[in-house]
């Protein structure tokens, strides 16, 4: 009985922690589907990882611009390239603590040589890297960005 109770407590805790900050896992097919997204939305896909210093440094800029654009048809997704083995002990705690404002997913897409070119043919694979796209065009940038750079890029692409 006692055991069952602990189990329930554990489950409830689990549900709550998951709900606090959900981090979906994207397979290659999910990435492909998402990259095909259309409609009058501007998508911002930022490729990052908890261990990537310049990635962490640009997060405040993204946070600021995202909050300025609240209500607008702009969707920011922060696609983590942290190792699968680091999900529980590194990625999830980092996201809960620092990225409660963000939509974060973890990429589990297999051989990078197969999916990197899907994001952009010019991408060498270094992170940070960010893809902006809308019906007005697409811009891919393989370096850390300032809030001004993010704002201006969005301005040229916003539908």
């Amino acid at each position: 009985m006692k055991q069952r109770f602990s189990l329930i407590v554990l489950l409830v805790l689990l549900v709550f922690t998951t709900r606090a900050q959900q981090v979906d896992s994207w397979r290659k097919s999910d990435l492909t589907d998402q990259l095909r997204s259309a409609g009058d939305t501007l998508y911002v896909f930022n490729f990052w990882a908890t261990w990537c210093k310049p990635c962490i440094e640009e997060l405040p800029a993204f946070k600021a611009v995202q909050s300025e654009l609240e209500g607008k048809a702009v969707r920011f997704v922060f696609i983590s390239l942290d190792f699968k083995s680091k999900r529980a002990d590194t990625l999830l705690p980092f996201v809960s603590k620092n990225m409660d404002w963000a939509e974060v997913v973890q990429l589990d897409a297999g051989n990078p040589n197969d999916w990197i070119p899907l994001v952009d043919s010019s991408w060498s694979g270094a992170i940070p890297a960010t893809l902006f796209w809308s019906p007005k065009g697409r811009i891919f940038i393989e370096e850390g960005l300032s809030d001004t750079q993010i704002r201006q890029t969005i301005k040229t692409l916003i539908p």
Binding site: G125, I127, G144
Partner: peptide
Amino acid sequence: TTKAIGCTI
């Protein structure tokens, strides 16, 4: 040639 994730220079 192949592409891979890595840390920026």
